[in-house]
Simulated scan of single mutants.
Amino acid sequence: MESIKEKLQEYINTGDDKLLKLLYAVAKEYTHNEDELRDDQIAELDMRRERSFSGASKGYNWTEAKKLIIGDKKINEL
């Protein structure tokens, strides 16, 4: 009786690109550590940080954010 690893290896050896990409995606997602940020996520955070420090992006303190969330204020009123 063939083991799962042997069967999977056979699929890999005989599979087309579509199957290989699917198996790769599943394996990558399964082994992905969710506590780590991807490079694109880090780049996005860096960009937002720079925009905030340069003044290109307006930030809100908790009181202002809460008013926006519950609808007591509009952004242009703050």
Rank of each mutant, 00 (worst) to 15 (best):
residue 67 K to D: 15
residue 54 S to K: 04
residue 65 A to E: 12
residue 69 I to R: 06
residue 68 L to E: 04
residue 63 T to F: 02
residue 6 E to M: 11
residue 22 L to D: 04
residue 64 E to K: 05
residue 2 E to D: 14
residue 62 W to Q: 15
residue 9 Q to S: 12
residue 60 Y to Q: 00
residue 10 E to G: 11
residue 70 I to P: 07
residue 5 K to W: 04
residue 59 G to H: 03
residue 49 R to I: 05
residue 55 G to T: 04
residue 34 E to Q: 14
residue 23 L to V: 11
residue 44 E to C: 02
residue 40 D to H: 12
residue 40 D to Q: 12
residue 4 I to Y: 09
residue 36 E to A: 06
residue 56 A to I: 00
residue 55 G to E: 02
residue 53 F to N: 06
residue 2 E to V: 11
residue 12 I to T: 09
residue 15 G to C: 00
residue 62 W to H: 15
residue 35 D to F: 13
residue 3 S to I: 13
residue 27 A to W: 04
residue 26 V to F: 06
residue 75 I to L: 14
residue 30 Y to I: 09
residue 8 L to K: 12
residue 48 R to A: 09
residue 28 K to C: 00
residue 2 E to K: 14
residue 37 L to Y: 00
residue 33 N to P: 00
residue 73 K to I: 10
residue 50 E to M: 01
residue 63 T to E: 13
residue 57 S to C: 01
residue 16 D to F: 05
residue 10 E to C: 09
residue 15 G to I: 00
residue 67 K to I: 11
residue 53 F to L: 09
residue 41 Q to T: 02
residue 40 D to G: 07
residue 75 I to R: 12
residue 18 K to N: 06
residue 4 I to V: 13
residue 7 K to Y: 14
residue 47 M to N: 10
residue 62 W to N: 11
residue 49 R to M: 01
residue 37 L to F: 01
residue 42 I to C: 02
residue 25 A to C: 07
residue 2 E to A: 13
residue 58 K to M: 08
residue 66 K to P: 06
residue 71 G to L: 01
residue 28 K to W: 00
residue 1 M to D: 15
residue 28 K to V: 09
residue 44 E to V: 08
residue 36 E to S: 04
residue 12 I to D: 00
residue 48 R to H: 10
residue 48 R to F: 09
residue 1 M to P: 15
residue 12 I to F: 13
residue 45 L to W: 05
residue 10 E to Y: 12
residue 56 A to G: 08
residue 26 V to Q: 15
residue 30 Y to E: 13
residue 62 W to R: 13
residue 66 K to H: 13
residue 18 K to S: 08
residue 25 A to K: 15
residue 31 T to C: 02
residue 31 T to F: 00
residue 54 S to V: 02
residue 11 Y to V: 11
residue 78 L to V: 10
residue 22 L to P: 05
residue 58 K to L: 02
residue 58 K to V: 04
residue 40 D to E: 15
residue 30 Y to W: 10
residue 33 N to E: 10
residue 31 T to Q: 01
residue 35 D to Q: 15
residue 32 H to T: 08
residue 23 L to N: 03
residue 51 R to E: 10
residue 74 K to E: 14
residue 39 D to G: 06
residue 65 A to M: 09
residue 50 E to V: 03
residue 8 L to T: 12
residue 66 K to F: 08
residue 35 D to N: 12
residue 45 L to G: 01
residue 40 D to A: 14
residue 77 E to R: 12
residue 78 L to E: 14
residue 15 G to Y: 01
residue 14 T to P: 03
residue 53 F to C: 05
residue 65 A to G: 07
residue 54 S to Y: 01
residue 45 L to H: 02
residue 37 L to N: 00
residue 52 S to R: 05
residue 76 N to W: 14
residue 71 G to I: 05
residue 56 A to F: 07
